[in-house]
């Protein structure tokens, strides 16, 4: 395990009561209502979800069913309208903006459909970005970004700008970035959606490798071949979880 910054503050006790739980993610009756002035749209209508450490969870469902909304809540990019959400033992239903930022930095790694790399800086600098926010010293940042880029097979592309990389390579940089702070969970929203079959296959293989390495993964996908590789498939429809099944797959 990589030791991070010495001056890294101890993870704050975030909620009023810390809940001892074996699960990394626990949602109870979570609702999300988007209030767009006139219309109130209930995107999530009471979701209950438990994800334990080391799981590889695929979320599937039709367009507009609320998958991305769910992922934003899991990743603390947004807060639920009601319900309870415990991430890694801490109740994060009601925390400040700064605390949310801190949680996103340390506990969650995001992978997006359109990669969302910062275009003006190199692959290595992109991977280092969460480490900058996490207060990791320069030297450690360099080592960590090299190690991660080598792990995703881009050891020779460290100094390339994202525009000089292929889609599959960009997504691998994004995955390296998501892993930088050793998060509790890696969240991916349609990570293969913008890739061709072969690049998508590479990414899927990479996810499986991470799973084998002990990472917890939550992946939203329309791609049945990706969903098939997960250890558990959750189906969302109209803001509710309608099915939750384990597959035969094991990390090993």
């Amino acid at each position: 395990m990589l030791a991070l910054a010495e001056n890294q503050p101890a993870p704050a006790k975030l909620g009023p009561q810390a809940v001892p739980a074996p699960s990394i993610i626990r949602m109870e009756e979570v609702r999300k209502v988007y209030d767009t002035g006139k219309v109130k749209l209930e995107a999530l209508k009471g979701v209950n979800l438990d994800v334990t450490k080391g799981e590889f969870l695929a979320i599937v469902g039709p367009s507009g069913s609320g998958k991305s909304t769910l992922m934003n809540l899991i990743g603390c990019l947004d807060t639920a309208t009601s319900g309870r959400y415990v991430l890694g033992g801490d109740d994060v239903s009601r925390v400040t903006r700064d605390q949310l930022a801190e949680i996103r930095n340390r506990r969650v790694g995001f992978v997006f459909q359109s990669f969302n790399l910062l275009p003006h800086i190199s692959a290595a600098e992109n991977v280092e970005m969460p480490l900058v926010f996490g207060g990791v010293p320069v030297k450690k940042r360099r080592d960590r970004s090299r190690e991660l880029l080598e792990r995703v097979g881009l050891g020779d592309r460290m100094d390339h700008k994202p525009t000089e990389l292929s889609g599959g390579q960009m997504q691998r940089v994004a995955i390296a970035r998501a892993l930088a702070m050793e998060p509790d969970v890696v969240l991916a929203d349609e990570p293969t959606g913008n890739l061709d079959t072969s690049a998508g296959g590479d990414i899927m293989a990479l996810f499986q490798e991470l799973w084998r390495g002990g990472s917890t993964l939550v992946v939203i996908t329309h791609d049945p071949s990706l969903a098939k590789r997960a250890g558990r498939v959750v189906e969302v429809r109209d803001g509710r979880i309608v099915s939750d099944e384990r597959t035969e797959n094991r990390p090993g």
């Binding site: 930022a101 996103r104 995001f110 910062l118 970005m129 969460p130 926010f133 702070m181």
Partner: peptide, 16 residues
């Protein structure tokens, strides 16, 4: 805007 959103997703605090 998007870049700022990404940075926030990666854990940047508003003041940063």
């Amino acid at each position: 805007t998007k870049e700022i959103g990404v940075k926030m997703a990666l854990g940047a605090k508003a003041r940063w």
